[in-house]
Design a protein around this nucleic acid. Structure first.
Lengths: 343, 343
DNA sequence: ATGGTCATCCGAAGCGCTTTGGAGGGCCGT
DNA sequence: ACGGCCCTCCAAAGCGCTTCGGATGACCAT
């Protein structure tokens, strides 16, 4: 069923039917109703490609998610981010197209995305500290919003980010207040911007208290359970073990917990753990009584906000870049406690 | 840069340029090269909407992922599945469009997807036992492949699935061989087809050995860490606790492990645990020495296969439904051991 | 010279929609 | 009765591409 057929069926012109369906004023209320009913009855829904061709708008947003070639890992945060974003898209009638791409051909990927006219805007995921995609996209005249920031770039662009630095600074201060002085940091890969910023927060809190950050206590890797386990096990077995861990992911925290138990220690009493918690739907950190003390910030919410931001930019392309900094909550769970008295 | 401009630039007709670019024979090798070079130099890439309109093909696959309204959870398996599928799409030049939808409006969603001409085929995620989407899609003349099956439906359709029943049957038998007789099942929600099939496998193994499945030992919920913890803690505190757990997700298994530790027991010695492991990139169950004994089947691989299957169907629409059953590996890790002697 | 065959190329229609620039008729005031 | 205005509708062009049905020569055999 297409417009022409629908128009013929109604004995009207395509023009009138199109206008009736799209809410233009120059059509009588009576025919508008007639058209709307026929459209529903005949299950008509306009062909998006034709509409896009005619209007020049794709009514779709592109999400390009980077899969680094070294470690073929899909960011677990992605699902929830998308879920949030799609709430916004649904309301606005936008679709979402996904493309995974290795880091080499990403620029090409974006260019093609634009040339093909597939999308009206792009959300950039997982920015690195000096992410080349951002200057590239700025030159492309395609609205985009970055989820995160690129610290080494000093050009304006729209982003939404969590305040990684302050979150980890507060978490570290909290541990310091509890008397911990040897605090390990099990971070994500340090070329990722969020990981860098989290380390800065951690180091700032330490130096503010006159404690020099100890490189031996800091690791940055892909945030898996085995990483948390291995790193924590090593550190706990060292001569001068940490009494607390700060980590970037719940999954890593779970590995840390395993190492703590295996060392015959108890989390929250002998060793404290704070993790960042993206509030993922399938990785709940307990609802009422959180298992882990955590800096929490909903990635789903970030997705929603990023999408809304992007849609605003598409509606008003002249608009200046917009930025949005989310503050994480520090929620207290059972994984932290006063530093044990030195024996 | 569009075809017309490119053709003008080359002093050729649109027809010839289009044919040169698409590999038709009626154009000399010499001009073909000239066209190809100009296209690259001028960064030309055909507008997908126009191309789609003209050819009637969208060159895109739709993934509709259900978000149940009760529990707004994104299946954590999704990211890896998509990653696998996109490998196949990339090779074939297909795009991927995503739409999340609550369970009520899903039919409408599919109809719209088709009417809008956005996609050439659909992958159906998370089928329920009597999933209404399958008969609906069959009537829609849109190729689709289901990731999983709908046990209560007796109509032909293409699917790819893991052999849930045999995997859980083998896992249960393995535990029985180790001397366990009270084996708890912490499953996913039972209206989900995979969960149903897993329970069947578990029950079959038990009854084969003359053990009546005990409803008190079986739970089916959203597979979160807290679910695993809570259920395991309750069961372990009961009068006649299980000596082994079988569960559908690594995340739940982690909760079970926590409960075991808190009960002062040791996993693999006092209590055995087997989990299903989707081999997710961010949830590695240890590489060399798996933490958990597990039935493993890569969901990423399933994604790749599903996509390839769908593309075959799009290429040859008359083709009969195709099905593919993957067998899970039973991999032995440190979480299982002989049943403790009754005291 | 003529007709036929190939190898190359081109014009124009058509995909399903939006949108510009009218057309037709009812109703008003005069 | 007539011009003018508004309300409602329509024809046709155009979005960027593919593809059908030729057109144009070059070349060969007759």
């Amino acid at each position: 069923m297409n417009l022409k057929q629908l128009a013929a069926h109604l004995g009207l012109s395509q023009t009138t039917v199109s206008r009736a369906l799209n809410g233009y004023p120059e059509v009588s209320e009576q025919t508008r109703i007639r058209v709307a009913e026929a459209a529903r009855a005949l299950n008509y829904s306009p062909n998006a490609r034709a509409k896009g061709l005619a209007t020049g708008r794709a009514m779709a947003i592109g999400h390009v998610i980077p899969i680094s070639t070294q470690h073929e890992m899909v960011n677990p945060v992605f699902g929830d981010f998308i879920a949030g974003a799609s709430e916004a898209y649904l309301k606005a009638g936008y679709d979402m197209t996904l493309s995974l791409s290795g880091d080499e051909d990403e620029a090409d990927n974006y260019r093609r995305l634009k040339a093909k006219g597939h999308v009206d805007g792009i959300i950039v995921h997982g920015p690195k500290m000096a992410d080349g995609r951002i200057p590239f996209l700025r030159g492309l005249d395609l609205p985009f919003v970055v989820h995160g920031r690129a610290s080494e770039l000093d050009i304006p662009y729209s982003w939404i980010d969590m305040n990684n630095t302050s979150a980890f600074k507060r978490a570290t201060s909290f541990l310091l207040d509890l008397g911990h002085t040897r605090i390990a940091l099990l971070n994500g890969l340090e070329f990722m911007d969020f990981a860098y910023r989290r380390r800065i927060g951690y180091e700032e809190a330490l130096t503010d208290r006159g404690i020099a950050p100890d490189p031996a206590l800091m690791r940055g890797e892909e945030m898996t359970e085995p990483f948390g386990y291995r790193a924590a096990a090593e550190l706990l077995a060292a001569a001068h073990p940490p009494t607390a861990f700060l980590t970037s992911s719940l999954i890593t925290a779970i590995g840390i917990r395993r190492a703590i138990h295996e060392a015959g220690l108890e989390m929250g009493r002998d060793v404290s753990v704070i993790t960042h918690d993206d509030d993922l739907s399938y990785l709940a950190n307990g609802r009422d009584m959180p298992i882990f003390t955590a800096t929490r910030s909903s990635v789903r919410e970030a997705g929603r906000l990023a999408a809304e931001m992007l849609l605003r930019h598409i509606a008003a392309p002249a608009r200046d870049p917009e930025t949005h900094l989310l503050e994480a909550q520090l929620i207290i769970g059972g994984s932290t406690g006063p530093a044990p008295k030195p024996t």
